[in-house]
């Protein structure tokens, strides 16, 4: 296990370096940053001065090394727009998004896995068909619309939940429900298909042949194998929720990292954009490592292949 973890972390490190290069090049390749910062009215001298101040006159390679060295020391730069430390900006908004992502993912999994298992036990039953219909709805409805519907119901009509902001835990209920509704179809289908597959497998027949009680067969023998793909996808989804919940954050006016990235892009605030891309990407990579380790813990075959 130790060697496996070290190998996975080594791979992750390599991917992180690659990601940092891509994040850097992506932002650089959007055009001349000095012109973008100075705006259309800036004179040639002003642009040149901007270029000098921000080190944009150096070679790309030097710029990357300088940026990477500062990043390693925890210096993600300063926002062009607000002149605030980028790290501080990210540390303010990341927890909001993280809370949202964790709660919506947990909610989604808690509903979809048991539902998927129940569907798989009797495929074609009424419960199964209702769940599948719901999952089609979940995939078809855009999350901003779901968010607005929830606001209408709980915020406006019933007036039981706050419709925006991050003042209390209650503020997170509707955004979390919106995102859970978004992830529910994927997990339902995965756990249902996985479970149907596993239940028809030979080792389930072996377990039944031993005379084990139904519950033991279902939980101990089937579920553990069936949720392997769910674990992989859940961690990736978690990454998406961290980086891509912009829509829901703006519907509910949550100052999360999605909103931060969105406003930074609008203002051509490149240090922030670059830093958000880097941070989200690194979290993504780490989540994949976590997924690999979780899968390895659940499925011993992965650790000792050949």
């Amino acid at each position: 296990m130790g060697a496996y973890i070290i190998r996975k972390l080594g791979e992750a490190l390599a991917v992180c370096v690659a990601v940092s290069v891509i994040a850097f090049v992506l932002v650089q390749s959007t055009g001349d940053l000095a012109v973008a910062m100075g705006g259309l009215d800036a004179s040639a001298e002003e642009t040149a001065r901007l270029r000098e101040v921000y080190g944009l006159d150096q070679s790309l390679f030097q710029q990357y090394l300088g940026w990477a060295w500062r990043v390693l020391q925890g210096d993600l730069g300063t926002s062009y727009f607000s002149q605030e430390d980028v790290l501080t900006l990210i540390m303010e908004s990341l927890p909001v998004t993280a809370v949202l992502a964790v709660s919506s993912l947990t909610l989604g999994l808690l509903i979809s896995i048991p539902a998927g298992v129940l569907c798989a036990i009797k495929p074609g039953s009424r419960f199964d068909r209702v769940c599948l219909a719901l999952s089609v709805l979940g995939q078809a409805m855009p999350s901003y619309w779901v968010g607005l519907l929830l606001i209408l119901l709980f915020g406006v009509t019933l007036q039981v939940l706050p419709i925006s902001g991050t003042q209390s835990a209650a503020s997170f209920v509707m955004p979390a429900m919106t995102l859970a509704w978004f992830v529910f179809p994927v997990f339902l289908r995965l756990s249902r298909a996985g479970m149907i597959d596993v239940l028809s497998s030979d080792y389930i027949r072996t377990a039944r042949a031993k005379g084990l009680p139904r519950r033991t067969v279902l939980v101990k023998h089937a579920l553990r194998n069936a949720i392997l793909p769910v674990v992989s996808v859940a961690t990736v989804q978690f990454g998406f929720l961290l980086g891509g919940s912009i829509v829901v954050e703006s519907v509910f006016s949550l100052n999360g990292i999605g909103l931060l990235a969105w406003s930074a892009i609008q203002r051509a605030d490149y240090p922030v954009v670059q830093a958000v891309v880097l941070v989200v990407a690194i979290i993504f990579v780490l989540l994949n490592v976590v997924a690999d380790l979780l899968n390895a813990a659940l499925d011993p075959r992965l650790m000792s292949e050949q």
Partner: peptide, 10 residues
């Protein structure tokens, strides 16, 4: 099928 008749995760 001895290859598939045993539970791979136990």
């Amino acid at each position: 099928e001895p290859m598939t008749a045993l539970n791979p995760t136990l």
